[in-house]
Design a binder for these strands. Structure first.
Lengths: 234, 234
DNA sequence: TGCATTTTTCTTGTCGACATATAAAATACA
DNA sequence: TGTATTTTATATGTCGACAAGAAAAATGCA
């Protein structure tokens, strides 16, 4: 008897339901597999994940509290739109968190943190070499998140993670349109940042991370100002 | 027939359940009516709020994603402990957010924002005059949250709100023990901050908010270093 | 035809019940 | 008596079903 013959096999550990749904939906939203503004149906998800609506709803509540989806009372819930009109608030926060987390990493990192950071650094370099844009975006976010972890301030880390997540959505649009030489420059700058952290040079970490962040911001802004407004509005 | 005669009166609007539970539990946690570390029972809450466990659970999921409660798998959920060992990370984030939000308020505030801010300023002054510590804590948080709103950066605002919330719990302990003259000084400093914002003097707003935040931090640290360690551990 | 009103449909919000995992209690055994 | 094992108790995780709103469709009327 093959596995597909038996119908009533739960095959899922108790308590894992919410996490599975949350993780997968989150990834799909951040990779734009679920388009901003698209509607989410609980029953549909329940069928897809083969579970009841209760754990689905709890995953949605969590996504909503993180701003990834919006729920209209008594009416459907939808993937949050990217607010292009207020990108400046996003960039302001992003630059400040780049600086704050990198500074703290220079202060508080431990030897084992550097190994982790270097790991993601190499992953990113390989993604650049392979011209794999989705991997570039994901490993870049992981690299900076690892630096934030080494800074050991959970308040900064959680905001920064949220910003990096939102950045994944924005950068997905960016790299969908343009392939250019900047990723290689980012690799070099990452190496400089690592060196500053390792040397515990707080001011250098601050200066380099600030320049790095502002380069990204200026590139994305240049792109968006060049593109036709109607082209990017969802 | 009086209202109490009919047993099966829902008397609650559909969709309001989660919000009611969330708001009340949040307040009780922040005012220390629910002690850090105390256990939360879903069935008990369901009976208390006269609703089923489903909306209760969704409110708990939301509180958990904001870090106010922690949920042990398959076992009970509890009110998050205050991490006295890592207060420095809290203060680092708090000072930076005081500065960032006040700077942005000086840049982006609109006339109507100032009216709101002044309203909370007066509420706080009255609470100080009345020596109502719980009101002081709440209106102080509201005052600074209003400044953050005027800065119009939702990323900063949401982190700052979370920090102010956590601050409510810490300050509750502070004021439980000591009554002193600092609240009046805070009133004066608030007035100076408002003036800087109104004058759109970004550097002054930065300087004043930094000094204000650091005064609070140093006061709380002084208190905690004076107190017996075992006295405050939970 | 055009608009207001009623009906239908469809999705969400809530409920009560069952299943299961963990901790505590009880038992067995050396 | 002390430890290991089994049993029980209890709170959580999940389920299927019903009810209530809101939008869409259908109907009525001028």
């Amino acid at each position: 008897m093959t596995n597909s013959d038996s119908i009533s096999v739960p095959e899922r550990k108790r308590g894992s339901g919410v996490k599975v749904v949350y993780d997968l939906l989150r990834d799909e939203i951040l990779d734009l597999k679920l388009a901003p503004g698209s509607l989410i149906d609980e029953v549909q998800l329940a069928e897809r994940f083969k579970m009841s609506r209760t754990p689905i709803r709890e995953a949605l509540v969590r996504l909503a509290s993180e701003g990834l989806i919006e729920t209209l009372p008594n009416r459907s819930t939808m993937v949050s739109n990217i607010d292009f009109l207020n990108l400046n608030t996003f960039f302001d926060a992003l630059v400040l968190m780049y600086r704050a987390t990198t500074r703290l990493a220079a202060q508080h990192h431990r030897p084992e943190d550097l190994a982790i950071i270097r790991g993601f650094h190499e992953d990113y370099a390989e993604a650049v070499k392979a011209r794999d844009t989705l991997a570039m975006i994901a490993t870049n976010a992981a690299f900076h998140a690892a630096i934030a972890e080494a800074g050991r301030n959970p308040y900064f880390t959680s905001l920064f993670r949220r910003l990096l997540d939102e950045g994944r959505r924005i950068l997905s649009l960016y790299y969908k349109s343009y392939e250019d030489q900047f990723p290689q420059r980012f690799v070099d700058e990452h190496a400089e940042i690592i060196a500053a952290i390792e040397a515990r040079d707080i001011e250098a970490a601050d200066r380099l991370s600030k320049a790095h962040a502002e380069l990204i911001v200026s590139q994305v802004l240049k792109l968006f100002s060049r593109k036709d407004q109607f082209d990017i509005a969802l």
